[in-house]
């Protein structure tokens, strides 16, 4: 049928909901900016932003595209950081192997936590993930290899693939940037794939998806594991970059922070979590030096955001652009 072949593939998951060409130009610009960024901004600060941005993007894959609000993602982020730090420092793993070990741990943990949590919905799902992540926190607090309050310190950065010296700021920055981009491309691919289409259907109307023969729990679990693995990638990279794995990254506050970043930037948008993570990290960074307590400001900002633009920053921009183009 001729209509069918000429029908453009519309997706609700267009990166920004703007035209194709404009969107591509923006992506190229953003990439150039990311490559040139260390010339203008302190690389360590950028690395921190990228790690949290990937973490938030991984979290958003679940909440934004499957509709599952996890309140336990710190377990994957901080857990992977511990495993990477330990394998690299104590077992002499190369950085890439250490990161791989961290990601594998996060994915496995995601499989277990996801399996237990997806049977519940809404607030109960969030509560189950919170409870399970608190158990993970407790294990890391007690396990001797984590050195409890001290954390695993001075993790050697070593040579990535035997050639890239990660102890120098610029190679380290570009390595983290590479991991971040890899994660983002993967998320984009998952969302805009046949599998992603089914995830969207499940989020939209779960009973209907079941009545069409989909074992929805399997799809949710697969998405949960992918999200956990990517959150683990963010934590693993962070452990190498900052030579540290600590309890802070497995606390429930960290799970809360990633929710805040994602809400602030815009749930269900590809770039929202990145913007949210950058904003929160920047606020924490700049207000740390002043007498103003950062949490109060971030909290205020969050309240203002929720009241003024519920869709989050990127979500609001997308909405306005769409409204304008349809006028």
């Amino acid at each position: 049928m001729s209509i069918a072949t000429s029908t453009p593939l519309k997706t609700a998951n267009d990166a920004l909901g703007i035209g194709h060409l404009v969107g591509r130009a923006l992506i190229v610009l953003a990439l150039l900016a990311l490559i040139a960024a260390p010339l203008a901004v302190y690389p360590v600060f950028l690395i921190k932003i990228l790690c949290f941005a990937l973490f938030a993007a991984a979290f958003n894959l679940l909440v934004g595209y499957v509709g599952l609000l996890s309140f336990g993602h710190a377990a994957f982020f901080g857990g992977a950081a511990y495993i990477t730090a330990h394998t690299v420092k104590e077992w002499g793993f190369t950085p890439e192997l250490g990161i791989l070990a961290g990601v594998a741990f996060a994915a496995t943990l995601g499989l277990v936590m996801g399996f237990l949590a997806i049977r519940r919905q809404g607030i109960y799902f969030a509560m189950v993930t919170l409870a399970l992540s608190q158990m993970v926190y407790f294990v890391f607090l007690q396990a001797p290899f984590t050195h409890s309050e001290d954390g695993i310190q001075s993790v050697p950065q070593g040579l990535l693939f035997g050639i890239i010296d990660l102890s120098k700021p610029l190679p380290l920055y570009y390595t983290v940037l590479g991991a971040f981009l890899l994660g983002m491309v993967l998320i984009w691919r998952v969302v805009n794939s046949p599998f992603g289409n089914i995830l969207a259907a499940i989020r939209e109307n779960e009973p209907r998806a079941i009545s069409l023969g989909y074992e929805v729990n399997r799809y949710k679990l697969a998405a949960f594991v992918i999200s956990a693995a990517l959150a683990g990638l963010a934590g693993a990279v962070k452990a190498i970059a900052f030579q540290l794995a600590s309890l802070v990254d497995v606390t429930w506050q960290m799970s809360g922070e990633v929710i805040l970043m994602t809400l602030l930037g815009g749930i269900g948008t590809l770039l929202g979590p990145v913007v949210g993570a950058a904003l929160v990290t920047a606020m924490e960074h700049y207000f740390a030096a002043t007498s103003i307590p950062a949490p109060v400001l971030i909290g205020g900002c969050f309240v203002a955001c929720v009241m003024l633009f519920r869709r989050g920053i990127v979500g609001e921009i997308r909405h306005r652009l769409k409204a304008r183009s349809s006028r």
């Binding site: 593939l9 805009n192 794939s193 046949p194 599998f195 089914i198 799809y219 697969a222």
Partner: peptide, 9 residues
């Protein structure tokens, strides 16, 4: 065509 997460839409 439901589980391929690596293929384009």
């Amino acid at each position: 065509l439901a589980t391929q997460w690596w293929r384009p839409l």
